[in-house]
């Protein structure tokens, strides 16, 4: 990272007006402010998860006893699929930061390569989440068509849940937390794709900088950041 942000500038000049004291562009600062507000939403959601979890500590299900399925196999692999999803999202975050780095060198070819891989990673994660949802909704019998013993917002059919009040809150939080995060992933993929089209059309070559890639990059890393917390506080704890 180079440029204004790491230059040693006298405080009186920096805060004296006529310039950004943070040495960032308007767009980047607004993206950070948006991310703070979004982080407060997710923070509130996860804090309320902690509240319910402690209030119903005696009947709260153990995630390892519910999430042990893995596609194409019947082996008992607790949390392995969620770990794989976490890994996919971390890798797509890495390809994003590599796209930003290539953008700082005005390397259009590499920006296209890494940004396309980021879009692919995002789609991969969304597909994984669709599988995760359908296998969770299907319940212990694995059949999604039998409504009475499916996991819904109103019931939790898993034996690990033993029917207490915590069990229903557990399903509700599953749908709300992973659903809200999945919505963010979806919009992130759409934004990345739009910016990718701009890169291919040479829009940022003309502007002279790839800061739009950096800004959608911030949003994409934020999605990864939220998932790291969801993984710990929903699945592990």
């Amino acid at each position: 990272m180079s440029g204004e942000a790491i230059k040693a500038i006298d405080t009186n000049v920096l805060w004296g007006g006529g310039r950004s004291p943070f040495s960032v562009s308007y767009g980047k600062m607004m993206m950070w402010f948006f991310l703070i507000s979004d982080a407060l939403t997710f923070g509130g959601l996860l804090a309320s998860l902690g509240f319910m979890r402690h209030k119903f500590a005696d009947t709260w299900p153990v995630s390892e006893e519910i999430f042990f399925h893995f596609p194409f196999t019947h082996a008992h692999l607790p949390l392995m699929y969620v770990a794989l999803m976490t890994f996919i999202l971390i890798v797509s975050s890495v390809t994003m930061v590599l796209a930003v780095e290539a953008g700082h060198r005005m390397d259009k070819k590499n920006v296209i390569l890494w940004l396309s891989l980021t879009v692919v990673g995002g789609i991969f994660f969304l597909a994984s989440q669709a599988w995760e949802w359908s296998s969770y909704i299907a319940g212990p019998d694995g059949l999604i068509s039998t409504w009475a013993d499916n996991a819904t917002l109103a019931q939790n059919p898993y034996p690990a849940a033993n029917g207490g009040p915590g069990a229903v809150h557990y399903t509700q939080f599953f749908f709300f937390v992973t659903g809200f995060h999945g919505t963010h992933v979806f919009s992130g993929v759409v934004l990345n794709f739009i910016i990718l089209l701009g890169v291919i059309n040479g829009k940022y070559e003309k502007t002279g900088h790839y800061e739009m890639v950096e800004k959608v990059g911030l949003y994409w890393h934020f999605i990864d950041l939220v998932w790291v917390f969801v993984f710990t506080f929903y699945y592990l704890l």
Binding site: M1, G3, A5, R19, S25, E101, A102, M106, H209, E211
Partner: peptide, 17 residues
């Protein structure tokens, strides 16, 4: 000041990053 315009770095710096 166009902060976004001078956030570029060279090929060697890119390697370290």
């Amino acid at each position: 000041i166009e902060y976004s315009l001078d956030s570029h770095h060279s090929a060697e710096e890119g390697k370290a990053i």
